[in-house]
Amino acid sequence: MTALFQVDRLKKSFGGLDVTRDVSLSLQKGDRVALIGPNGAGKTTFVNLVTGHLRPNSGKVLMDGEDISTFNPMLRVRAGLVRSFQVTRLFADMTPEQHVALAILQREGKSGRVAGTFQAMPDVMRETYAILETLNLVGLARTPVSEIAYGQQRLLEIALAMALRPKVLLLDEPAAGVPHSDTFLIENALAQLPDDLAVLMIEHDMDLVFRFARRVIVLAAGEIIFDGSPREVTEDARVREAYLGSYGHASSAA
């Protein structure tokens, strides 16, 4: 059976620095995978490579068996591969309502319409507010993003990804910058994602990782050093050495 999403021997170097070394992995429908690794391990670079924001030196990316390595970011999104950004990328002058509606309109192929407004499209409005509700953003629906707190902007990042209804979702540190008291909103959102969606989440918060993931991949210095269950990750010698060595307390917390 072909994997829903497959990365094949991806390589990338910046100048002389090998940031991604022969990374291969695959995701199936419904996977909940956490990608962890020390800072600078190359996790964001990996996301940039597979979503087409960076060009790899070699290697392939496949969706449903189809090679999408030559696709630009836009085409990859249309193929069902959606990401969120580690550092929020939003439209400062626009409201959360407009952001989510725009993503929905785009998904439905209606973003090219030159007349009418999304406010007058009941389906779009209903879905927009359902998503905003999930992330507890309804109260801010009509406030420009530049005036809302960073933590809530992070939630909006996730809202956008949800609105695009991807097949494969790559979340780059969704909880980074969200106050601890609000991470439950992110967990709520994650819990509401469709069951057949494959999710790969980069995250530093080990509590969140252990609650969310049914599989953990560890990236260190550009290489995958572990790919297995959350239970085993804490016992793996290489992981302990490369990663948990500096985060020893995290294992006890789990």
Binding site: T51, H53, N72, P73, M74, V77, R78, V82, R83, F85, R89, L90, F91, A92, D93, M94, L102, A103, Q106, R107, S111, L160, L164
Partner: peptide
Amino acid sequence: QDPVRVSAMGA
């Protein structure tokens, strides 16, 4: 405001 974000929406 952000063309990269727009292309990441698939437009």
